[in-house]
Every structure is written in structure tokens, then in C-alpha cells.
């Protein structure tokens, strides 16, 4: 997978002294808008999470807190009183396991759909494409019945299985488009060399696939980490909750005093892993998203 880096035409930055470089001004306005638009709400959360309660509720609103208005209290509360480390572990566990499962199930299927001619191939592909569009609300009732029938409520499996499934379509689409770009000669050569199909997949195809697996894995992890509806429905015991649900329910518990500080801190804690992922893997995320939808 290579990103398209298109040679952009040199922009006439200094066309002449008299004319104002409108294009440049417009561009920088758009960029400034993009940055402020994307960052401001997040930064406001960060700021709130490190302000003292007094500073949070102060009038006029405090934008630049002094040293005496800063505190780590909310984070400490989060872990001391609300046991947030449990939710982090739950979220991480469920997300990582479902991501690995999803890659393990989805990549072979993607390979088969890309390379092997099997009857019903078009049907499977079409179904995978359509299914990416289904909102989870359509699934939760049926899944709830399964969870109840199998007694899986408050069991990690109740999230791992659906999370694996909801990430399968994207995994199959992204990995398939990747496999299609691999030179076929390599696989033919492996067959002639004497690799059987599984050996070939494991020893020849997989090493070449690692970058795509990372890309897909990041996307699957993000979707699993962020899921709310199933986590809300299937995990009712406090010790089994994931971060999004636990954070959302922080505020609901105390009617009179809304814990603004801890709430803000919980959003920061819950989003931090994803912020790091985006920082390091921006390129891969973009690639994966476009490969999964546009090329489909």
C-alpha cells in the first residue's frame, strides 16, 4: 500500500505586489478552522480535568488557570474512588482479544475472496459490503436473546464475540484489497516450491501482510474500544464495565452534585489511548478507512 503523494502545482505565492494572494489566505483560514474545530473541544476537556472544582464553576469562566487553580485531584479520584483501572483493563482486554480474533478470522477469508475462486464468492462479498452499513441498534435485541439464552451476561465473551463480528466486514474489505495488490507470482512460486496452502499463507503471505494487518488491527481496536450499546446492555455488573459506559454513568449517579472534574478526567483517560494511536498511525488509519470503503 502506497499513499498517493501527488506533486502539487507550485502555488503562485507572490504573484505581484498589487494583488492579494487570496488563495493563500483562504487556505490558511481553512487550516486554522480545521485545527481549532478539531482540537478545541478536546482541549477544553483536558483543561477542565486539571482545574480545581472552584475554578471549574467559577464565573467568569477560567481559560487560563493560575497555579493555585490546577489540581490532579480528579485523576486521583478517578482511580482511587471510582476504580477506573478496572474499566481500562476491561476495555483493553475486550478490544485486544476481539481485534486479534477478527484478524485471525477475517484475513484468511479476505485471502480466499481475493485469490481463490469459490462458488458464492459474490454473495459473500455483497453481504459483507451491505452489513458494514447496519447500525448496532438493529442487532442488539437478537444478541441480547443469545446472551440471555447462553447465560453470557457479564461475561467478556458477550462483548468479544460481537466486537469480532462487527469488525469483520471492514477487515475483510481492507485485507482483500491488500491481497489483490500482492504480486500473484510469489504465491505461484511458493506452490511450485512445495508450500501447501497453509504453509504458504503463514510463511510467505503473512510476513508481507504485516503492514496491512497493523492498519486493520488499529481500526478494529478503535471500533471495539469505542463501542457503547452492547457494552451498556450486556455488562451490568460494575466490575465488568468498559470505559465508555463507566464514564457515561459517572454523572448519572449523583443527582445533586455533578462531578464535572472527574467526568472530564474520565473522558481524557478514555480517549488518551486513541489519541496516541492517531498520533502514531495517522497514515495507516487513513489508508485503512479509504481502502475499506472506497475500493470496497
Amino acid at each position: 500500500m502506497t499513499t498517493v503523494t501527488k506533486p502539487t502545482a507550485p502555488t503562485p505565492s507572490s504573484t505581484s505586489d498589487s494583488s492579494i494572494p487570496w488563495k493563500r489566505i483562504l487556505l490558511w483560514l481553512a487550516i486554522a478552522f480545521t485545527v481549532i474545530f478539531s482540537l478545541a473541544p478536546v482541549l477544553w476537556q483536558v483543561l477542565t480535568s486539571i482545574k480545581t472544582n472552584a475554578a471549574i464553576t467559577a464565573d467568569p469562566t477560567v481559560y487560563f488557570p493560575g497555579l493555585d487553580q490546577l489540581t490532579a485531584r480528579h485523576y486521583i479520584d478517578l482511580f482511587r474512588e471510582n476504580q477506573f483501572q478496572i474499566y481500562i483493563i476491561n476495555s483493553a482486554l475486550v478490544s485486544v482479544i476481539s481485534t486479534i480474533l477478527c484478524l485471525a478470522l477475517g484475513s484468511p477469508a479476505a485471502y480466499a475472496l481475493a485469490r481463490l475462486r469459490i462458488p458464492g464468492e459474490q454473495l459473500v462479498l455483497g453481504a459483507v459490503l451491505v452489513v458494514t452499513l447496519f447500525p448496532y441498534i438493529l442487532l442488539f435485541l437478537g444478541l441480547l436473546e443469545i446472551v440471555r439464552a447462553l447465560g453470557l451476561a457479564n461475561n467478556y465473551l458477550a462483548l468479544i464475540v460481537p466486537y469480532t463480528a462487527i469488525n469483520l466486514p471492514l477487515t475483510i474489505l481492507v485485507m482483500r484489497s491488500f491481497f489483490q495488490q500482492l504480486p500473484k507470482d510469489l504465491e505461484d512460486s511458493a506452490k511450485v516450491d512445495g508450500y501447501n496452502t497453509l504453509q504458504m499463507l503463514w510463511q510467505i503471505v503473512l510476513p508481507m501482510t504485516l503492514p496491512a494487518l497493523v492498519t486493520t488491527g488499529i481500526l478494529a481496536f478503535i471500533f471495539a474500544w469505542n463501542e457503547f450499546l452492547f457494552a451498556l446492555t450486556f455488562m451490568t455488573r460494575e466490575s465488568m464495565k468498559t470505559i465508555p459506559v463507566a464514564a457515561a454513568q459517572l454523572g448519572g449517579t449523583t443527582l445533586f452534585e455533578v462531578p464535572y472534574g472527574p467526568l472530564a478526567a474520565s473522558t481524557v483517560v478514555g480517549t488518551l489511548p486513541l489519541v496516541l494511536l492517531v498520533l502514531f498511525f495517522q497514515r495507516r488509519i487513513v489508508q485503512g478507512l479509504t481502502a475499506g470503503s472506497v475500493k470496497g
Binding site: 510469489l186 505461484d188 506452490k191 512445495g194 508450500y195
Partner: peptide, 29 residues
């Protein structure tokens, strides 16, 4: 299957395994 025919094939694109050294490539079969 191709692997059971004891044939060797050289491809136009050479089809060398990119993640293996020259030595490993030659020894793979």
C-alpha cells in the same frame, strides 16, 4: 499439486520472497 511434481520454475518477475535473504530464498524449496 505443484509442490509434488518436483519441478522448478523461474518467473518473469523472479518472485523472490521479499522478507527472506538471498540464502533463505535459494534454500526455501
Amino acid at each position: 499439486a505443484p509442490g509434488d511434481r518436483n519441478i522448478a520454475m523461474v518467473f518473469q518477475s523472479y518472485a523472490l520472497y521479499p522478507h527472506m535473504s538471498v540464502q533463505q530464498n535459494i534454500a526455501s524449496g
